[in-house]
Structure formats: structure tokens, C-alpha cells
Amino acid sequence: MQKYDLSKSYVKEVNSNIALETDQLSVFYGKKQATYDISLKIPKHSITALIGASGSGKSTYLRSLNRMNENGNTNVKGKIIYEGIDINSSKVNVYEVRKHIGMVFQEPNPFAKSIRGNITFALKNHGIKDKKVLEERVVSSLKQAAIWDEVKDHLDDSAMSLSGGQKQRLCIARAIAMQPDILLLDEPTSALDPVSTGKIEETLRELKKNYTIIIVTHNIQQASRVSDYTAFMHSGHLLEYNDTNSIFNNPEMQITNDYISGHFG
């Protein structure tokens, strides 16, 4: 593999309607640095894809956005600005952050509860007691996640009996039932078959009308299919950020071109 210059990058300036912004975000696992000074502005009501080879730091970066990196000896430096507040500050209530910025993981991880229980569990903990409100949230979130038709007749069955793709859409429903602003998805389809993947991509396109979505994906085609903006990361550096069309048709950096045409990754 040829050597690339990691000090050069092309980041398009996006200025209108910013949902989330990071300013020089660096993540450290102990002494090891995983991402380097990433500054990025994510536009509202759009899908932004983070692409790059394994170990490029894209998942690490994504997980810091709602402070899921706070275990053990992980250290996140820099600013994450949401609604004018630096939510990376230790003074900020992390539970409140996660209510506004939801997350869906690579491995479908519904709780060992009923389908309904999966959705209402967190809502109840956040103080929603009204049965009618809860039921509304169940219905609307399952509909938005495009799984309602498949499960509406057995909401009280165990979520564990669903197929992998259904489980993942349930997890998306569980996340949007919280009515977040931003939805982070960490390789949400990499454990799924093509049909389920297609359904989830369709769901995402629907969801971006109401949510800002950031998706990490290993699948370059997926990024080109669903996203409006694409950020390319390599070795912990953000190397190129542009609208998806430009990245895929006319990348500014040689390395980006090499990655999307499959020369490495």
C-alpha cells in the first residue's frame, strides 16, 4: 500500500442548519490515540455517512458523539457542540445527552422483554407514565421503523423471537421512541442479510425527514445509496468531507479515490 500524507485534508464548509458540530475531537484509549482533532459540522435532517477502513476510528468517533465512550480509561478531548452547548463537558448530564442523541448498534440488541416492553422500558424510566402516551409512542415508533405491520399482532411476544433484521428495526424503533434529535447508527446492517438491509435503508431515508442521522458503514455502496454527506476517515484522521455526490464522483484526495474504488479497506 502506498504512503499517504495524513496532514492534508479537504473538509467542505457547511454553514446552514447545523445539528451537531465537533471541534478538534480526539479520543484516547489509555495512552493510545484513536482519533486526531476531528472538526466536522453535521447538517440537520440529512444522512451523513462515516466511511473508512477498519481501524480508521470512525466507530470510535461516532461513539463519542453521545458519550458512549465513557468507560474505563477512555478520554475524549475537544468540543461537541449541540444546540450551542458543549455536551462533552463533564458538567453536562450524560443521560440527558443520550435522550437527545440516540444510538443503534452493529449487533441487534433488543432486551429480553416483550416487543412492547422494549419500547416502553426506557420511556417509563424517563417519567412517561400515561398509558395512552406510551401506547402512541409504541405504535408511531414501530411504524416509523417500518416494522409495525410485521409485529402489530404480537406486541407481547418476546423480542428474542424476531429475526435479525426485525430485531434491528425494533432497536431503531426503540431509539426513535425516545424522540431524539439525532440518531447515530454504528454499522447497523453489517450483521444482516441483503433483504433486511434494503428495508433498513428505506427506513433511514424516511426517517431523515424528522431526524438527523449519522451512520458508520463499512459498505461503500450503502454510503453512496443512503447518505447526503460523506466523511472519509483514515488512521484516526478526517481526510475528506463533502456531499456524497462529490465524494463518489469527484473526490478531492487521492486516498479517498483509492478507498472508494476498492484499492484498500
Binding site: 450551542g84 452547548i85 455536551i87 458538567k91 453536562v92 448530564n93 443521560y95 440527558e96 424510566n125
Partner: peptide, 17 residues
């Protein structure tokens, strides 16, 4: 709206307790 959001973010919630 903005201010109340900021307040929410900076004050402990049920989960904190």
C-alpha cells in the same frame, strides 16, 4: 426554549440519582 434546554443539560436528572 434554549435556556431551559441548557438548564436540563446542566442539572442532574433522575438517572443521576
Amino acid at each position: 426554549m434554549k435556556n431551559s434546554l441548557k438548564e436540563k443539560f446542566l442539572s442532574p436528572s433522575k438517572q443521576t440519582y
